[in-house]
Design a protein around this nucleic acid. Sequence first.
DNA 1: CCGAGGCGTCAAGGAACCGTTAAGAAGCGG
DNA 2: CCGCTTCTTAACGGTTCCTTGACGCCTCGG
Lengths: 224, 224
Amino acid sequence: MTRVLLVDDEPQLLRALGINLRARGYDVITANDGADALTVAARHPPDLVLLDLGLPDMEGVEVVAGLRAWSTAPIIILSARHEQAQKVAALDAGADDYVTKPFGVDELLARIRATLRRASPVEDTAVVTTEAFTVDLAARTVRTEAGEVRLTPTEWHILEILVRHPGKLVSQQQLLREVWGPAYSTETNYLRVYIAQLRRKLEPLPSRPRYLLTATGLGYRFEP
Amino acid sequence: MTRVLLVDDEPQLLRALGINLRARGYDVITANDGADALTVAARHPPDLVLLDLGLPDMEGVEVVAGLRAWSTAPIIILSARHEQAQKVAALDAGADDYVTKPFGVDELLARIRATLRRASPVEDTAVVTTEAFTVDLAARTVRTEAGEVRLTPTEWHILEILVRHPGKLVSQQQLLREVWGPAYSTETNYLRVYIAQLRRKLEPLPSRPRYLLTATGLGYRFEP
DNA sequence: CCGAGGCGTCAAGGAACCGTTAAGAAGCGG
DNA sequence: CCGCTTCTTAACGGTTCCTTGACGCCTCGG
């Protein structure tokens, strides 16, 4: 069941919205200030967060940052019209969406569904297994039959991006931009070096790669 | 560089917002009515669309549908408060977000960043299937009954354009321009070579094409 | 009947790209 | 300050891909 963390300092809203969400089959947990939200979230990691901006103890952006430090669950901001600036800051800090108060319940539910639909394909699989190796995205470890493999930060970064898009082609530009930054989008030889290192460490036959495949002129692909 | 298509019938807004966006490093192209928007988008596929609802010639929902017919770029609606109903219709037709006029530039920029951040990793799972082969536009893979087909960058580029306009004729000029650039609009023999290669790889009977059809003197058409 | 233009096919040379290796530079911990 | 790991950079051989020209087929119009 999808767990929703609902953060607001108005008990009535907490109650009304909680009833509505539970009626739709969500598992709802609540918090009424920022510190509480972080504590509750740490104990019961939510799949989605509804965050009111007018909290008594913390700025919304701090709460977002505190969650984003470890969680990738989507965050929807609930904001009053006069909290414009905070809303923008919260979105920049990593929130995914917002709804302006007062809002209709139907609109909020639609946004929840849309946001969850967008987020779902990536986050479920914290561990990716192939016949040759196992990647634990949360623990940042890779194991083969021979034991645990040591990866450098850059090697891991590349592997993580590929593994998070299983079966899909990841363009050279995307890899270079995400790992080295936008200024390096043409340094394709970096990729050649690191892909070769990953293959040497992970592929049963590095010269005949089975999992880290090349799409000449386009990019690379992880094939589970 | 991220290309933004800005559609509005007010020249002042077009100008002011265009300056602001360009200052932030976006590549901005503009259109001042719905028909113009579709034409411009076809010629320079945008990464994101900002669409005003109060256009003189078409309903917003039509423009959204026209774009969604082939593009998965996120669409943000710019709507006045009295266009509530149209806004809902546009969102249902496939728009991704909306901002209500009058809006602050900072808010809009934040929405743009958030929307692009969301859109990039997911990429949408557009899959086109025929009886002979399956094209996964996101994963950039093509499968036939015989297994996965390896395509070169240019082959893929052409196939992608045709598949994104199913049933529609794509002119030779358009194909040549999009794949090789404006200077090659007359090198039609390039097309003959690559269409032949695609047929050999995808058509059950390459000599009697069923899916990649020739429109003599005009261009080619993908028939699902 | 014949020529012209458009299309499909093939092959070859050259350009671009990829995998690999290695060595110097830079950062980090002891 | 030294040694270790990691990153950057350059060079090479091999492979793939793009470009280009030639040729035959078909259709259509003269």
